[in-house]
Design a binder for these strands. Structure first.
Lengths: 165, 165
DNA sequence: AAAAAATAGGTGTATATACACGTAAAAATA
DNA sequence: TATTTTTACGTGTATATACACCTATTTTTT
């Protein structure tokens, strides 16, 4: 039983070998974490073909969203799915592969502006088609169910508890 | 706008500053990834009080599930939520903090068996109460909705595509 | 205008992830 | 029984996460 085997396991109970959950709410917490791992793992495996990590792909996709406008590091960071991503370091790797270019903003010298290169655009276009196809094939769910799932996830995050310190 | 601010943002559109999703299915993919990040981040912040990372907590909890039986590294690994976790290394850190003990199995000398120490049990008991409380407070969802969410997540993972290479 | 505060982004460190590979032991096979 | 294969686990490496801190700017306040 290896990682690949798990990708085909559907039941949470089987995936984490646990049958006793305190409540459906507690189970939902684990289910969300496990499903995210599963999704990320499958997509990352496919992205390897393009020499990209999931996070590098994310940064490129964010840049494409504003293209041909440039974006500063901060703008990219606040669009990342995982907010604690260290964007300067991810950009280091993209720059090494010549997929983006860094330069200092003329208006505000504190800002570093990032531009997609032609190479970056090519790789992104090819990988986006693949990721979109994989996602559609992978997520075995109707549009209606997906809409419902989106509502429930938003409900999940609608906590009363104010966690800002 | 920092990480703490995001924890209180409910709408996915606002969280990742993106309004155009190709479909509800595509949006659901991002929603699952974002919700998992959000949940993991909040719980990790609380676990810092006990000097534990989310993954270290996970290993301790798995060990507790079989306690007072010992478990080998492999058994722990296949119960992890994130299957690609490097369990020997996580155990290194737990051992340094004297929360677990390693020894070689007498029956199969390849196996390393792991035992919770008294210290490990104490920390785990205290942190488990906290994590369960936080989860219940945090996940603003009824048992019925949670049940529905669990069904939908299972549906999501019920792909036809066989990804085992 | 000068001083203080805030902001942008780079960098250091510990931990984790993802994956490849090595070694010892056990199991399977010849 | 000897050889091969498999298994369990540790370890090395690149990347990412989480967080703290530093420096150069810009903005705000005095």
């Amino acid at each position: 039983m290896n990682v690949y085997t798990y990708i085909c396991v559907v039941k949470l109970e089987q995936a984490i070998q646990s049958t006793k959950f305190k409540s459906e709410v507690q189970k939902a917490g684990l289910n969300i974490l496990y499903t995210a791992w599963w999704l990320k793992t499958v997509i990352s495996k496919e992205l390897k073909e393009f020499g990209l990590t999931h996070e590098q792909y994310n940064v490129l996709r964010i840049l494409k969203g504003k293209y041909p406008e440039q974006m500063c590091v901060r703008d990219i960071a606040c669009r990342m799915i995982e907010k604690s991503s260290n964007v300067p370091r991810i950009i280091d790797r993209l720059e090494l592969k010549k997929l983006v270019k860094r330069s200092t903003s003329a208006l505000d010298k504190r800002e570093t502006v990032i531009t997609l290169t032609q190479g970056g655009i090519s790789i992104l276009d090819a990988s986006t088609i693949m990721v979109n196809n994989i996602t559609d094939e992978l997520l075995a769910i109707t549009e209606k169910d997906a809409g419902h799932l989106n509502l429930l996830l938003e409900k999940v995050r609608a906590t009363e508890k104010n966690l800002v310190p």
